[in-house]
Simulated scan of single mutants.
Amino acid sequence: MSHTAHIPSHRKPRRNASKTALRAGVAGGVLSTIAVAAAAGPAQAEPVTQTIEMPTLTSGLSTAVAASAEATQQVALDLETQAHEDAAATTAAKAAKTAKAEAVRKAEAKKKAEAAAKAKAEAALRASRSEARTTLSATSGSTSVASSSSSATGSAASVVSFVKAQVGDAYVSGGTGPNSWDCSGLVQAAFRSVGVDLPRVSQAQSTAGTQVSLSNLQPGDILYWGGAGSAYHVGVYVGGGQFVGAQNPSTGVVLRSLDYDPPSGAVRVL
């Protein structure tokens, strides 16, 4: 026995002849098929279908989407709130406009009513003056002629002297002297100079003494314009058909004829 008999052989085993022939036949058939296909022309390419795998949402993306939805909802709420505020502002503006129009209407109505009342008062005053002129004319042609022979004496003379001394002073509503007066302030001061305390306002002064006829005036009598108890102006008769009165801001204290502005009546205090 050889000394190498126990060592395995390193040669490759021989291939089975039948297997080798089969493989050669298959390879030849495939090559033939490819050759025939190539000769026949290019093959129709089949469509390739590719499957794309979609990524899975991560937790961070979910949080971002949730935050975006919350922000969108907040914007919607803000827009709704703004819409309510705008509607309220519009309603308030309309209400203010309506109120203003109503106030203007009432002011115009009040102005018209005041104008009507003033016109009525002026008409009544003109009627009163017309009546006074008629009375004056009926007594010897005029009051100045009927009373021109009268002369002031005693306290009446002092009252006449006082008011004449103020002629030229300014007229100031509420004025009580010594250099500015209103009508009743001048009359009150004149009678106070002889110790007679008269009421402050013309309405009360027109009823402070005995009512006398305009045809029987004496110096020192108080003349009034308007009704007794509701007179709006007073003055002092100084004789000779004249009176002194604090008329208005444009004329001040003046000496005027009764024909200039005939009074409505007179009262005698002295």
Rank of each mutant, 00 (worst) to 15 (best):
H3N: 15
H3C: 12
H3W: 13
H3S: 14
T4S: 09
A5D: 13
H6E: 09
P8N: 06
S9T: 06
R11K: 11
R11C: 06
K12R: 02
A17E: 10
A17C: 12
S18D: 09
A21P: 08
A24G: 08
G29M: 11
G29R: 02
L31F: 14
L31A: 15
S32N: 08
S32L: 12
A35K: 05
V36F: 15
A38P: 08
A40F: 11
G41I: 14
P42K: 10
A43K: 04
Q44M: 09
A45W: 03
V48A: 07
T49S: 07
M54G: 01
T58E: 03
T58H: 03
S62T: 01
S62C: 00
V65I: 07
A66M: 00
A69R: 02
A69H: 03
A71F: 10
A71H: 11
Q73G: 13
Q74I: 06
L79K: 09
Q82W: 09
Q82A: 07
E85W: 12
A87H: 07
A88Y: 09
A89R: 11
A89T: 05
A93M: 01
A93E: 04
A95G: 09
K97W: 02
A101W: 15
R105S: 15
A107G: 04
A109M: 07
K111I: 13
K112M: 11
K112P: 07
E122C: 06
E122P: 10
L125A: 09
R129A: 07
E131W: 10
T134P: 04
T135R: 00
L136M: 09
S137R: 03
S140F: 05
G141C: 02
T143Q: 02
V145W: 04
V145N: 10
A146E: 10
S150G: 14
S151V: 13
A156G: 11
S158M: 13
V160K: 06
S161R: 13
S161P: 08
Q166N: 06
G168C: 12
A170D: 14
V172E: 07
S173W: 13
G174W: 02
N179S: 13
S184C: 00
G185F: 04
L186K: 08
V194K: 08
P199E: 12
V201W: 01
V201Q: 01
V201I: 06
S202W: 08
Q205C: 02
S206Y: 05
Q211H: 06
V212W: 03
S215L: 05
S215E: 07
N216V: 08
N216Y: 02
A228D: 13
G229N: 13
G239Q: 03
G240M: 00
G241Q: 07
G241K: 08
Q247N: 06
N248R: 15
R256T: 03
R256K: 02
S257W: 01
L258S: 10
D259G: 11
D261G: 07
P262C: 07
P263A: 14
G265R: 05
